[in-house]
Design a protein around this nucleic acid. Sequence first.
DNA 1: AATGAATGAGACTTCATTCAT
DNA 2: CATGAATGAAGTCTCATTCAT
Lengths: 209, 209, 209, 209
Amino acid sequence: MPNTAQTPSKKKTQVTASPERRRELLDTAAEVFAAQGYNATTVREIADAAGMLAGSLYYHFDSKESMLDEILSTFLTELWEGYDAVLAAGLGPRETIEALVTESFREIDRHRAAVAIYQKESKHLTAQPRFHYLSDSQQKFEKAWLGTLERGVRARVFRADLDIRLTYRFVRDTVWVAASWYRPGGQHSPDEIARQYLSMVLDGIAVRP
Amino acid sequence: MPNTAQTPSKKKTQVTASPERRRELLDTAAEVFAAQGYNATTVREIADAAGMLAGSLYYHFDSKESMLDEILSTFLTELWEGYDAVLAAGLGPRETIEALVTESFREIDRHRAAVAIYQKESKHLTAQPRFHYLSDSQQKFEKAWLGTLERGVRARVFRADLDIRLTYRFVRDTVWVAASWYRPGGQHSPDEIARQYLSMVLDGIAVRP
Amino acid sequence: MPNTAQTPSKKKTQVTASPERRRELLDTAAEVFAAQGYNATTVREIADAAGMLAGSLYYHFDSKESMLDEILSTFLTELWEGYDAVLAAGLGPRETIEALVTESFREIDRHRAAVAIYQKESKHLTAQPRFHYLSDSQQKFEKAWLGTLERGVRARVFRADLDIRLTYRFVRDTVWVAASWYRPGGQHSPDEIARQYLSMVLDGIAVRP
Amino acid sequence: MPNTAQTPSKKKTQVTASPERRRELLDTAAEVFAAQGYNATTVREIADAAGMLAGSLYYHFDSKESMLDEILSTFLTELWEGYDAVLAAGLGPRETIEALVTESFREIDRHRAAVAIYQKESKHLTAQPRFHYLSDSQQKFEKAWLGTLERGVRARVFRADLDIRLTYRFVRDTVWVAASWYRPGGQHSPDEIARQYLSMVLDGIAVRP
DNA sequence: AATGAATGAGACTTCATTCAT
DNA sequence: CATGAATGAAGTCTCATTCAT
């Protein structure tokens, strides 16, 4: 997931005009998209949720698609700020994985809707040029995680008998699917969930003999 | 996921028509639904993929929705045949989990498209009465897995220090998300994938000290 | 084209506002209307060209349509001042035609945009009561030109072997279509263009035997 | 006006399907476009005129714009067939002009609506890449007419004292504006109109001294 | 005077579905 | 069985216009 070059909307929508209102509306839209799916969501439903008429949304945004775009790219930008900080910290492989997982759950906590949308829609969005940055991010993401896992195998902190790509998918999916059931303000804090997830992933759920 | 035999077409569709052609068309439809999402798929795209015109599909099926219905219910019926056999076998908790995971990967191998559709669409489909059987299945599914896990904790074969519901979601998601990247005929057989997944889930990816 | 003083704004627009600004804005609007067509022009494009926001135009004008109205009626008023002077001068038919053509090219020079708009839009505007004055003008126009041509035929200065209505349309169109390509400040002055046009219309482009 | 490369509609509309219906609908659309202007015409008005619902038009055409495109390009293709035949005939300059004018009035007779649309819309359409062929045609058109006129001046059959570009515009506009008032089946046949126009253009409307 | 935000009507377009052939 | 043509509902988007500030 890349810190997107963000489509420069030259046309009309005031990107200048009050960014708070924009953000409010995007949050509303993200919530509806996450709940119903992007395609199944009508512009009118977003507008209803925002307390305005469908047409009024177009004062703030070019199109329904550009809302989706902005939701996803904003999320990815923030995500990579966190990831890049972790990767630059020079930690050992196990500590890096721990930090990445923790960071991920924090992002899920902060951008639950965006993550859920990303999970559901990103695959078929990458076909469109406008959303190529999703693949870019995906690749960068894979490099960071897979690289760390490989480093760990070489350093003998991760098992060598497993297919490394399988392990990668396992860890990756395990973390991000959480967005589909996670509700902020629930029983466990993001950090607590991260701790338990890491414990399962690293040590397994079986009792040690 | 229940084997609710919800298929009886009430309206008109010729059940007389050769069931093989029906299945062929459903397979085609499932593939397209999985690739693009149900909502994003037009009836014309399915027809194109099947080499006919959109209207012609209606000789075989009542509606786009009934195709989805049939795809999902067929899959769930088969899935529960396998699951029920496992659950009736009277295995210990660890062996039950192993058998369920293995069975799941076999289903993914056989019904990749259906599983992918299920993953993406089931949440917002359960709202419709027609698809209530999806929630039924979900519940039955949860009871089987959660029950087995709890049994394992009591039997001291699974760790007691983890939130059991978190563990459940972890195992469940770990398995099913695989449908999003799995391609039949790949490097690893379903059983091999199951073996490695189980190894990770049960024993973790970290090297034991 | 009549000088129907159809301008009195009945509704609200501040006529108090400086008339120069009004004229400026109308000139801008006319330019955009001429370039893109009235229907294809959005109020926002006019506002952009004027360096303000769309809504702000409504401080100056009732509606987009009233801008068009004012552009056209102002032009026609001026046109008829010139024409009426010519017609009142008591010239012979050939001299009258010469004077009318010359006057027309001067109007095109002064009101290029308005003339272009008139050419493109007048036909479908005449349906609306608000723009009935366009048909009135058209009729008065036809009477003046056709009458002069007929007078010329009777006086044996214009050919009698031509369909007089065809001749009328020929002369009329010949003159006014020029607005579609004419650019003020070009190579030829309006009077020079008029001279050459008259030479062609009166004597033809073929070399005399 | 070029014999257009015609946009290859790859997407969906059956260009194969009954070309007669297509042509019928295009004729209807052309009539409405010519009467009201392209922008002022709604898809529903076209559909009403064709006795169907607005959406049904999209079975035959990609978009309102593609109808316009097909109307114009079909017309231009036919026009250039006629023009090219004339230009290839090796006539003298005066005879070439006569043949071109005659051919033009025949085209106006056959494609009155298309010509009217061309006159009104072509200028602002050329901005769009899709309609670049309009400029191409315009250029080819200019080369043919201007070239013939220059040839005529050199051959001393056309006057040398006139600005040749002015003459070109004069002749060109004179002919084509006729589409705005011409009604097929009127008093004069296209050939008769051509004859009188040529008489005016070549010899003028004034009586020879 | 001008802005920023919103309204509401209506435009173009898509698409599941129907049905005579 | 399948096609070709059409329907009708609904969806996205545009735009002239309004109005409080």
